[in-house]
Amino acid sequence: MQQIIIILLVCLVGFRIVRRVQRNFSWSELRSNRLTFRIVLLAVIGIIFMTQSGFSIVSMISDIIGILIGAALGIAGATMTVFERRGAELYYKANVWIGTIVTVLFVGRFAYRMYEMMTMSRDRGQNFNFAAGGSHWTSGLMLIMFAYYVVYYVLLMRQGKQVLARS
């Protein structure tokens, strides 16, 4: 049963990664409702990661550094985003390099965590729990992605309003 859950989790994450990579290379319609939903969802998940990482000094420093790096990447990504008006709709194309960096960080962390959990369970002869354990730097790495998307989407909506006002 646990293997089925792991396979489903890997398939779901794999699907989302493929969709993310596709979005890095194509135009997307700017939909404020969808972006607002994503902002709230990612902020909530980010807060959960922060609280689950613990309140040690190393974890807090890791979280702060992750948020700062993610916010800086979000600002850089938003300034490099290109907008195009198609009829009444506004489309945007994210910077490929910034999106790729964030995606690679996420995929690398996810793959490392899966490898770590599988080798740990094999060495100890136990079933593994994906959410348990990990280093103090884990949530900081994940918060880079969450902070990036929250900041990026907020700035994207703001820039979209400015582009529409100029048109």
Rank of each mutant, 00 (worst) to 15 (best):
M1N: 14
Q2R: 14
I4R: 04
I5G: 12
V10D: 12
G14I: 10
R16K: 12
R19Q: 12
R19I: 01
N24M: 13
F25M: 14
R34L: 05
L41E: 07
L42T: 09
I47H: 01
I48G: 01
F49S: 04
T51A: 02
T51S: 02
S53F: 02
F55D: 13
S56A: 13
V58F: 12
I61C: 05
I61W: 06
S62M: 05
D63R: 00
I65A: 11
I67A: 12
I69Q: 00
G70W: 02
A78I: 03
T79P: 00
T81N: 01
E84Y: 02
E84M: 04
E84A: 10
E84L: 06
G87S: 00
G87V: 00
A88M: 05
E89W: 02
Y92W: 09
K93R: 15
K93M: 10
A94Y: 04
N95L: 00
V96I: 14
W97R: 10
V102M: 05
V107F: 10
R109G: 14
M118Q: 13
M118P: 00
M120C: 02
S121P: 08
G125L: 12
N127C: 02
A131S: 08
G134D: 06
S135W: 01
H136K: 09
H136V: 10
W137S: 07
T138H: 06
L141S: 02
M142V: 10
I144D: 02
A147R: 06
Y149G: 03
M157N: 11
M157V: 07
Q159D: 10
V163L: 03
S167Q: 01
S167Y: 02
